[in-house]
Write a protein that binds this DNA or RNA. Structure first.
Lengths: 356, 356
DNA sequence: CTGAAAGCGCTTACAG
DNA sequence: CTGAAAGCGCTTACAG
């Protein structure tokens, strides 16, 4: 009655194949009194199999402790049954970013529900990228979840070129062709920025500066665009001196904010394009002797753990990471199954805390 | 002269196998004018192959753009060529912890150097653990890097039982048998704690409280032991009221520190068993109106990014994560190659910043 | 609904 | 040093 496999265990657990032979489809067939073909059919959904045969096979599987050998299956089907989570950025940045964790965890879980293991791949250098493109192109994974904030990433291009299903996190803004050419899932960055700046205006701020993300990333571009839109619609003058770009790291948030403060000492609000940079900005403000939100209101972006752990906790824009990862996996699985590529944009939401 | 593969690309990049046939070992053999066996030998280290044959094969590989099919190889060798990074804890905690990132990144990189892709597996629930043990036992990965702070983790046990190479991060303290039965890599927790408490004593503190980790984890037990040792050797009375356990989360750091403060309002130092909990403790101290390090010195553990981003930055104990991940991979690869299990303990180091 | 058979792409003794 | 051949464990038309 025990469901556990009666496998290996004892004996020479030392070197390689000293373990007992694992049961194969052949053993199951013999045990069930059917052919290997029938066992295989049961394993693959049970179509064209009589109920009695299916039952016998399932019993035999339990009895023998049979587990399918994926390598054999993959050899025939040409599918690996696994997917990759590929990071093509210098890694420190992503690993420092709490968003990364949430995304990675969400994707791992969503894929696990499909019984698809996730391979984590880091390709910060050109060299590593080449290796990984080769690896992926050789069919070692069925699809790739690509995380690369910078636009015009050649990896995405080459993977698609090689016919590999790819879903990006974030909007690829290369401007070429329709946006659905490269499947992607993104939060509505521009609208998030709009909400934040409107909130700052509503709370009486007028000299609103912004620390943007890198301007070759969609988050950098879109959030800045939203900022500009709202200031314009409020009839406020466009002051380029209030705008400076960071690189999403905490350190850059501090230095960029410090620069802004030096240039426009009278600024009364700071919209920072990520919570992590906002943490840095908080440090810079404290060093400059400004209180938050008394002297300067600070708005972040992401609603990551950094927002909560900051002092004061940050008003920010929530990115729906759970939905983002779920959608990425949905699109990837779809593509693997033959659907065409598509894009999903998810709404963002203002979360007010103590920094504004 | 181009080294890039002249594969797939065009054609029906839509559904499954519409792509051009990938070159196989057969194509390479024909191109090189040798047998498939010879090609295989070149692929597997080039032993027993004449230089001229090897050269011809390599040229043919370049020309055809051949990439080895790992599934076919795995089917024969019984090895998958991949390893797993398995987390058997409730995941939120680990993902919140910056240490996790560093470890995951380090292991991914170290394995990549061996050309071994890393599968990320999360098994927080019993159900998931069962699934993953099955998966791993079926030979889908060659070895497992196991991260599970709690002792007596049944997963480790079962994996070892099934003959799977396993290396744990952290010392398994079940007390049964020799410590090398289960391969592991750990930092010298106890000595780290000693260093921190000695440092606190050296800076004049006398009422030193501690927020420990969970007492069913090695970090919890060992760091507390180090704390006790040093207080005893300094002739200070053992005051159990100065000791309370957290769960490594930031939130628990705050609540546990608050409890300690309520119980022993006169404490003048806090040794907190992780930086993340120390961040929480800092919040609690601020709420209680205590200055750091003026009223209370705070020492953390880990030297994670949390230590740097805290206000004030934390004096802490550095765990050598880079070496830990490197050693874990070294031990795992060794075990896969047939070496017996062993354990590695790495030194920790005091890093002083502004909180003490 | 089911079995017999071919074949996926490789590795590995076995002879030479 | 090299080739011919068997076989790893599965899936999938093909007949029935």
């Amino acid at each position: 009655m025990s469901v556990t496999s009666n496998n290996a265990a004892g004996k020479a657990a030392g070197k390689g194949p000293g373990r007992r032979r694992r049961p194969t489809i052949h053993d199951v067939a013999r045990e069930a009194g059917v052919s290997r073909g029938t066992v295989s059919r049961v394993l693959n959904g049970g179509h064209y199999v009589s109920p009695s045969a299916a039952e016998a096979v399932n019993a035999a599987i339990r009895k023998t402790g049979y587990v399918l050998n994926r390598h054999a299956r993959s050899l025939i089907t040409g599918r690996s049954g696994s997917a990759a989570f590929l990071l093509t950025e210098p890694q420190e940045k992503f690993f420092e970013d709490p968003n990364f964790n949430v995304l990675l965890r969400g994707c791992t879980q969503a894929l696990a529900a499909h019984d698809i293991p996730l391979l984590l791949m880091l390709a910060g250098t050109r060299e590593e990228q080449r290796r990984i493109i080769r690896y992926v192109s050789a069919g070692h994974v069925d699809g790739v979840l690509l995380v690369s904030s910078h636009t015009g990433d050649p990896v995405a291009e080459q993977l698609v070129e090689a016919g590999i299903p790819v879903v990006m996190c974030g909007k690829p803004v290369d401007g070429t062709g329709p946006t659905t050419r490269l499947a992607h899932v993104a939060a509505d960055d521009r609208d998030g920025a709009r909400q934040m700046v409107r909130h700052l205006l509503a709370t009486g701020r007028r000299r609103i500066a912004t620390v943007t993300g890198p301007l070759d990333t969609p988050g950098g571009v879109e959030r800045l665009a939203g900022y500009r839109e709202v200031l314009a619609e409020a009839g406020l003058p466009a002051d380029e001196g209030l705008i400076a770009a960071g690189d999403y790291s905490r350190a850059s948030g501090a230095s960029t904010a410090a620069g802004l403060l030096a240039r426009r000492p009278d600024l009364d609000a700071l919209f920072v394009a990520s919570d992590l940079m906002a943490q840095g900005a908080l440090t810079a403000l404290e060093r400059a002797g400004r209180t938050v939100p008394g002297d300067v209101a600070v708005g972040g972006f992401d609603d990551s753990t950094a927002a909560v752990s900051s002092m004061p906790p940050l008003t920010t824009i929530r990115q729906p990471w759970d939905r983002i990862s779920a959608e990425m996996v949905r699109l990837l699985v779809g593509q693997i199954e033959g659907e065409s590529t598509s894009a999903v944009i998810l709404p963002t939401e203002l979360v007010t805390r103590d920094s504004t």
